[in-house]
Nucleic acid binder design. Structure first.
Length: 610
DNA sequence: CTAGGGTTAG
């Protein structure tokens, strides 16, 4: 075989990622003595790198007779490709110490890319400085990678400065800049750049859509996705689809999510790991956790994200046993859990009060898997101790943990003190909390109730003064009920809805039946200072009740009522919904700001902890 | 012969 023919064969293997054929070629090259032939060693190195065989790549590199800057660039790219950016940066200095070579623009671009994926701002700036004083300082490819690096590090000003210096703005540099703007939430800047592109491609559209979705502009992401479809852009890879599935998950819009799922099937991407992982998460977040499980079960390959998604989904829906048994299956399948998996697991334990299991998992995370717990892990564990009445252990953990506990952590303990009747600790915790100058109005309700319980009236009035200020800051509550073809949003308070009278009538009727069953309104969560009956009136018009009533009036009989609320469900509404589900014999699912509530047969999946 | 941009879980 000829040298140039072998070269083409190797390049083909690299593109197709078929290392088995590549290895045969390698053997052939060694046998035929063509190893010294021009670019063959570098191409061989590149083939192993592109096929993800970093060890073989390193071996070829070490045994190379002559190494030139191309060899080094190829080796560094191989490390980037293998997701070892740290190694890229640590191997680089050997280029002069071993071979006395200076980096060229190919090497510089690889270094910048490594800095970008590590978020290494300081090193990135050093590489930038090297680039400026190098003979390649006009190279647009390196500049594109610098734009991307600065954008990923959150330094948008630096990114756009480099971007402006690019003479011929290629679609790659434009895409890097669009992605940077979109991810930082600079919507109009990102959209304008795309609009100005003469040849928009799938990459640039995807950069914009996924960036908007990542920065929380889910509806805008959808509009642009629809526009991209209308423009007839061929969706030849799964990237934009996984983003848009994620957008439906965050919008908690089940019907929309189902439509996106249909599109995924129509375009033939159901076997893409990224897409099916996103679908599992979407169904769980859209309150249909059984559909999430069905997707999970039918996946032909599963990675740690798939397992974690379903574990977290089960945990959020109060299905702790299923979450924990899925974890056992995951370990049997040979997967290694990560930080996110443990958040889901400890969260699952706190739902059902599995204290020793939670404590064991926390320990196992550190000792068996070498992971370091974050504030979130401590908060979950704290929540578990508090809810289950292990107040001393909770307070000790709060003091001993290596993070400064935040408002939510203290508030969780305070509400547990109230629930378990520990007034003394309650006061201690309340004093800590008050010094933090809380931001959340519901924290003040907790504080006020704690001080009132201990008859500390001076403190009560101090807290109530702050509440008056808070009232203006409080985000208005709203709930959305999903009826399949339509959905309806309700705000708290008396509405001007055309169905108002019917909704009022139904709620009044249900109220009478509930009172017969022993329901007494719990007004302790009403912020405003007013008379008892006025407070009860306020509760009566909470948005989740209006949404549920509307659902009962309009939804197909026997179907599940699905409601999404922006704030947390208050204690009284929680009691009311438990009554309603058993009176009307319907399942009601409410997704609130923190978790899911499945109301069925007079009970809730959250076990009344939320 | 070698380099740059877009996807999933808390």
């Amino acid at each position: 075989m000829h040298c140039s023919h072998l070269l083409h064969q190797l390049q083909f293997c690299a593109r197709r990622q078929t290392p088995s054929h590549g290895k045969k070629l390698h053997a052939h090259i060694l046998k035929s003595g063509l190893y010294q032939c021009g670019p063959l060693p570098n191409t061989l190195l590149d083939m192993y790198g592109k096929c993800g065989l970093i060890k073989d790549a390193l071996q070829v590199f070490d045994e190379m007779p002559h190494r030139d800057p191309v060899s080094w660039a190829t080796l560094l790219t191989a490390h980037n490709q293998a997701k070892l950016p740290h190694r890229t940066l640590s191997v680089f200095p050997n280029m002069f110490t071993l071979d006395g070579l200076q980096p060229d623009h190919f090497v510089l671009a690889s270094l910048v890319k490594a800095c970008a994926s590590l978020g290494a701002t300081k090193l990135g700036k050093q590489v930038h400085a090297r680039f400026i004083i190098s003979p390649f300082c006009d190279d647009d490819v390196v500049k594109s990678s610098l734009v991307d690096m600065y954008a990923k590090c959150g330094l948008l000003d630096s990114a756009s400065l480099v971007f402006e210096s690019i003479y011929q703005k290629s679609s790659v540099s434009l895409t890097a800049m669009i992605s940077g703007y979109a991810r930082s939430g600079l919507k109009s800047e990102a959209v304008e750049l795309l609009r100005g592109m003469s040849e928009k491609n799938l990459f640039s559209w995807t950069a914009l859509i996924s960036g908007l979705v990542q920065s929380g502009h889910w509806v805008d992401g959808f509009h642009l996705f629809i526009e991209m479809r209308r423009k007839g852009v061929d969706i030849v890879d799964p990237f934009s689809l996984s983003s848009i599935v994620g957008a439906s998950a965050n919008l908690a819009a089940l019907e929309l999510g189902k439509q996106v799922h249909c599109l995924v099937l129509a375009l033939g991407y159901e076997s893409s790991l990224f897409v099916s992982n996103a679908l599992v998460d979407m169904y769980a977040k859209c309150s249909d956790v059984l559909a999430a499980k069905r997707i999970f079960d039918t996946m032909c390959q599963r990675d740690i994200v798939s397992w974690t998604s379903i574990i977290v989904g089960m945990a959020q829906h109060g299905r702790a046993e299923e979450a924990l048994s899925l974890y056992d299956k995951m370990i049997l399948a040979g997967l290694k859990p990560n930080e996110v998996t443990f958040v889901g697991l400890i969260y699952a334990c706190s739902h059902v009060g599995l204290v020793s299991k939670g404590r064991y998992l926390f320990k196992s995370m550190v000792e068996d898997y070498g992971l370091s717990p974050s504030l979130q892990h401590y908060t979950c564990l704290l929540d578990l101790y508090s809810r289950s009445g292990h107040l001393e252990e909770a307070e000790n953990l709060l003091k001993a943990m290596p993070f400064k506990p935040d408002e939510a952590a203290w508030a969780a303990l305070l509400s547990a003190c109230k629930r378990h009747g520990n007034t003394q600790m309650g006061i201690r915790v309340a004093n800590h909390l008050l010094r933090l100058e809380p931001e959340d109005p519901s924290t003040y309700i907790l504080l006020s109730n704690a001080y009132a319980g201990a008859a500390m009236w001076e403190n009560v009035s101090r807290v109530r003064k702050r509440i008056t200020v808070m009232e203006f800051k409080k985000e208005p509550g709203y709930s959305c009920v999903d009826l399949g073809k339509e959905s309806m949003v309700f705000c708290a308070g008396e509405s001007f809805d055309p169905m108002k009278d019917e909704i009022f009538g139904l709620l009044k009727e249900l109220d009478a039946e509930m009172k017969k069953r022993g329901y007494v309104p719990d007004i302790s969560s009403v912020l405003h200072d007013m008379e008892q009956h006025e407070k009860e009136r306020q509760l009566f018009w909470h948005s989740e009740r209006l949404a549920v009533a509307y659902g009962l009036l309009k939804a197909v009989p026997g179907t599940v009522i699905r409601v999404v609320k922006n704030l947390r469900v208050c204690g009284d509404c929680h009691t009311v919904l438990k009554h309603i589900c058993s009176i009307v014999k319907r399942e009601i699912i409410v997704r609130d700001a923190t978790r899911f509530h499945h109301f069925k047969d007079g009970r809730c999946s959250c076990c009344d902890f939320w």
